[in-house]
Design a binder for these strands. Structure first.
Lengths: 336, 336
DNA sequence: CTGTTAGCGCGTTCAC
DNA sequence: GTGAACGCGCTAACAG
């Protein structure tokens, strides 16, 4: 840090008091005369003294800082989630570090490893590396740094999780489509292996079973993080398999589908219906208005942060897993 | 922080070496035997030793942390900007703290004051409190903590700024509308006093002068941070003054205008044209597609972060003020 | 190349 | 109610 102008010793000298007395003035135990305390505080303000946070951290083994690690930030879902987290942290007098992995497992590992040293008291994470080794997470336990997952989780790691019931929402959305003559329906995912993609896929598959509709494997479509590439894949799917409906597992793929349909002059919802997981506040302003499965993103973040602070405060955890409800909102894009 | 299992002393004992030798193994000066270094690193890994970051911070007066302070996070512009900042920070081996003020001046002051103590080496901020006292910013200088403004700035504070030419883009957009028989045109702002709102208003006013169109003061409309309230205000403006065009100074007000027009069955662009400052990636998917003035949000963040790191590295600053260009994209909502 | 020593700034004993 | 002294964990001098 850039050196603050004055430290406790200098302030003590200026006040003709001991450093311990000065220190006491900044803590809130009644072990100091009210007058001297005020005297000290006034002088401190005058001289611009602020206790060095890192010395305190070292002394107390407390950093009052948490970390949020997520695959991306610049999207409606994650920025809302972080907003919720930051708000709770601020309310608890904590600071919030953010780390974006760009969906890269290796980056996630590096970031977490950089946190073993105690920089933060706790971590809230939405994961990037399902299908990879997760042992590095366990070292966190050794360092006594609590971890809470939200939305995208590792099922094989036993930490508190805050999620929405992706299986259920996907199942319901798919069932709705199948029951309304939208066979075949295509599922667009980013990564089948990620917990989210996985649950949403299972719901999709099981809805087919329930509706006794045979599923064409080619209609579970792995897209890309790259928009251009995804559009190509979607276009190919649309032209080749002519699905009557699309279920997009992330917002980006829903809007990409719109773009493709616009380009290819495929009419929504007449020729293809579209519904997608999305936190777009203006879904109703799209052309046509987009049907959405909307997760309570901010609440997810809030809840995850609250869980983390419960742990930090040694409160007994009521639930290891919090499942919030997603809302399915049918708009014009799935109108029959 | 939660105590890491083992400290340097214990590791040194386990290795039968001195702490300074151990310390050297973790730094990258060539002042240690390669073999002993490897020996130490191996043992460290085995025992799960990680240098305590706060002890290092204290020792070196370096935190390798920066702060981002902004009015809001959950919107396209700011989340993109933060993405850019975080990326640069990560590339420099720095950590990024984020703070959201909810556009509250008082919160901004509290947050900044909480940073005087040297928690961070530098601050990147988009401000919330134009029209208030900014003296508290100057204390940062006393603490030698560099500050860079982006997008929303205090003109009376002399620190590096990364902005777009809001006056220019607003002028051009307004001029376009006035030259195409869209008189009167309404300007929607959140806060006339904020630098952004101010520059965008000046451009708006001056375009009227240039086009020799008399400006109705009632058509510079102060909206709210609350969506519902803003819609009411916009509706009132639309019904009372019947503007032929709307220039929305922030994305939220553009989409709110769409919502009002949808509700009131006012046709865009036939009855009213709409253009807005926006980073919506799907502006072209709206009904009708939205004309936008788009700022290079991520680049703004990137540039601000680069400037800050230049300062931290004592590089000479080439420019006190970086002005990036916004792009005006006309779509259907301003079609004549 | 390695060990010894002396703080970084603060907060908490324990005396007085 | 206040001060002296120690140590949190680490690293930079300095010596050897």
């Amino acid at each position: 840090m850039s050196k603050s102008f004055i430290n406790i010793k200098e302030l003590a000298v200026a006040l003709n008091l001991s450093t311990s007395t000065v220190s006491r003035a900044f803590r809130d135990k009644g072990d100091i005369n009210a007058d001297t305390k005020q005297y000290i505080l006034d002088k401190a303000k005058e001289l611009g003294y602020y206790p060095n946070i890192y010395a305190s951290n070292l002394r107390d083994s407390k950093s009052r800082t948490i970390a949020v690690i997520m695959p991306e930030l610049a999207n409606n879902f994650f920025s809302l989630a972080v907003k919720g987290i930051e708000r709770v942290a601020q309310a608890n007098g904590y600071h919030t570090l953010i780390y974006v992995t760009d969906s890269l497992y290796q980056k996630e590992v590096e970031i977490v490893e950089d946190l073993y040293n105690g920089r933060v008291e706790g971590i809230i994470m939405s994961v990037s590396g399902e299908g990879n080794d997760h042992q590095y997470i366990n070292k966190l336990k050794q360092s006594h740094i609590p971890l809470v997952f939200f939305d995208r989780v590792y099922d094989d790691i036993d930490v508190p999780k805050v999620i929405t019931d992706d299986y259920d929402s996907s199942f319901k959305a798919t069932e709705y489509l199948l029951n309304n003559h939208c066979d075949p329906v295509a599922l667009l995912v980013i990564d089948k292996n990620v917990s989210i993609g996985n649950a949403r896929m299972k719901g999709f598959v099981d809805a087919h079973k329930k509706c006794k509709v045979k599923l064409n494997e080619n209609l579970v479509v792995d897209c890309s993080n790259d928009l251009e590439e995804s559009c190509q894949i979607i276009k190919h799917t649309l032209l080749t398999y002519k699905p009557k409906a699309i279920l997009a597992s992330v917002e980006r793929l829903a809007t990409a589908s719109y773009t493709v349909c616009l380009d290819e002059k495929i009419k929504i919802p007449e020729e293809v219906k579209i519904i997608g997981y999305s936190n777009l506040s203006i879904a109703s302003l799209l052309n046509p208005s987009l049907s959405t499965i909307t997760q309570p993103a901010e609440e997810l973040g809030t809840k995850a942060a609250e869980l983390l602070f419960d742990i930090l405060k040694d409160k007994p955890l009521l639930q290891k897993e919090v499942v919030l409800e997603a809302e399915i909102i049918h708009r014009v894009s799935t109108t029959l």
